[in-house]
């Protein structure tokens, strides 16, 4: 079969469970705390809102190319994938378990606006616990790979969590940032950030921009099989580094240089030109393969 004629299965459109079904080896999915054994969030019930049995996140064991892995998948369609008390605790539990059992990797399918405001304090504290648990799993030698390509992106505290992972694999549709454009527009005005200008939002927070700037390790098509190939390929050549001053010093220098060079810019177009892209305005139109080729040809 010619690959281009094969039916693509959009990651963006899929539910968390469908993403996992296509990401892991067939038949290897074993859920921890499955819906039939779980209760929806009582905090939502108190606010008169229906909950979900899995509280918007699926945690599981599975295999990727026959290697044992753990996976965590947030459901963006349920309350924007936001982190509440149970949701956060499931993630923390899985990351701590990974630090103990040392699977080949944790795949973290992030699709979240951050803290669930209905459980605001519990959500914020849970995200802090997730941050520490990600770093503990990595310090135990377990790579934690963030996969970002859902409708809610990775925002708020979950944007920070994504950047604490070993690497981020993102699709063009994926978005990664701290404050959402709507929040910035509400507080700072439409001149600062017009959240309805989709093209601008993608040039500032979208997958291509994050990949070109090096904030994401890989750019993949909006296709579940492409995320699977990307994760497999990434893990094949990755050894989790021990936490070290040298490593963070290098990160510090790179971030300082970048800030000094680009601090006044307000649009991806400016950054791409400065990175050496000859025709920055063509970037939004490029397909994935052309963009990867473009990035690989940039001066370093």
């Amino acid at each position: 079969m010619i690959p281009s004629l094969a039916a693509r299965h959009s990651w963006f459109e899929a539910t968390a469970r469908a993403r996992l079904a296509g990401l892991l080896d067939a038949g290897s999915f074993t859920e921890i705390l499955p819906p039939a054994d779980s209760q929806p969030s009582p905090h939502l019930a108190l606010l008169d809102l229906p909950g979900a049995f899995d509280d918007g996140v699926v945690v599981c064991h599975g295999q990727l190319e026959k290697k044992p892995i753990f996976a965590i998948a947030q459901e963006g369609q349920f309350m924007g994938g936001a982190v509440g008390e149970i949701h956060g605790a499931k993630i923390v539990g899985m990351l701590r378990r990974a630090a103990q059992e040392k699977p080949a990797a944790v795949l973290f399918l992030i699709d979240s606006g951050g803290v669930r405001l209905h459980e605001a304090n519990a959500g914020l504290i849970a995200i802090s616990e997730i941050m520490r648990a990600v770093l503990d799993a990595r310090a135990a030698g377990v790579p934690v790979i963030a996969l970002v390509g859902g409708s809610c992106g990775a925002f708020g505290g979950m944007g920070i969590v994504a950047k604490l992972c070993s690497a981020i694999i993102i699709s063009e549709e994926g978005r990664l940032a701290l404050s959402g454009p709507e929040v910035i527009e509400t507080v700072a005005g439409v001149e600062e950030f017009d959240s309805k200008d989709r093209a601008l939002v993608w040039r500032v927070t979208g997958g291509k921009h994050r990949y070109l700037m090096g904030d994401c390790a890989m750019l993949v098509e909006d296709d579940i099989a492409a995320f699977r190939r990307g994760a497999t390929e990434f893990l094949a050549s990755w050894t989790e580094p021990a936490p070290s001053v040298a490593h963070l010093r290098a990160g510090q220098q790179a971030l300082e240089h970048r800030l000094a060079a680009y601090a006044s810019y307000r649009d991806g177009l400016q950054v791409w030109a400065a990175l050496g892209v000859a025709e920055p305005e063509s970037v939004p139109l490029l397909d994935r393969d052309s963009l990867v080729a473009l990035k690989e040809g940039l001066p370093t």
């Binding site: 969590v161 940032a177 404050s179 921009h209 510090q252 800030l259 307000r266 950054v271």
Partner: peptide
């Protein structure tokens, strides 16, 4: 809260800071 801050991946710098404390 600004576009130029988000353009340079503010969540990345905050994550870097958290990593240093850790």
């Amino acid at each position: 809260l600004s576009r130029s801050q988000e353009l340079l991946c503010l969540n990345g710098s905050l994550a870097h800071l958290a990593s240093c404390v850790d």
